[in-house]
């Protein structure tokens, strides 16, 4: 019984070698699976920090600049603009969107005891409202 003739041997050269391709494909697949679980998509909020409070308050325009202060009211931390207490991020966004003076930028003042999550939310709200610059000011508690 003849299973392979010379002629058939010649034809076999045309067939594609799949093993190496499969190796590489599996390797890439595993690589992407591993990296996908490693890295969560992170982005950035770029803020200018101002430690010297006098420079932060020296904006000279007719309208008041947006100054968001994190304060504690009735046991809860709230965003305060002027004398208004704003409890949530979405409400703060709405207020900032309608803010008349955006040219002077926005200032976020955070005392030491304030939760960082709210400071980040305040900066994000200012960025979302298209303020040209957002400054973060550490607030010294008396």
């Amino acid at each position: 019984m003849k299973l392979s003739s010379h002629k058939r041997n010649h034809r076999r050269q045309i067939t594609l070698e799949m093993t190496s391709m499969i190796d590489v494909v599996f390797l890439l697949l595993i690589f992407f699976i591993v990296t996908a679980s490693f890295t969560k998509t992170e982005r950035e909020l770029d803020a200018v920090t101002k430690v010297n409070e006098k420079s932060a308050a020296s904006a000279k325009t007719d309208l008041e600049p947006a100054i968001i202060v994190l304060t504690e009211a009735d046991g809860k931390w709230v965003f305060q603009i002027g004398s208004n207490n704003i409890p949530t991020f979405t409400e703060l966004e709405e207020v900032l969107n309608k803010f008349p003076n955006k040219a002077d930028g926005a200032f976020v003042r955070a005392p030491d005891k304030a939760p960082y999550r709210m400071a980040a939310e305040a900066i994000q709200a200012c960025k979302n409202a298209d303020f040209p610059g957002v400054s973060y000011i550490p607030l010294v508690q008396k």
């Binding site: 982005r43 950035e44 909020l45 770029d46 803020a47 101002k50 980040a120 994000q124 550490p138």
Partner: peptide, 19 residues
């Protein structure tokens, strides 16, 4: 940290957030 960085002349920080 911000105060420390500012004292060394670095006034810009990038705060990482998670999408």
């Amino acid at each position: 940290l911000v105060k420390q960085l500012a004292s060394q002349g670095i006034s810009k920080v990038r705060l990482a957030v998670e999408v």
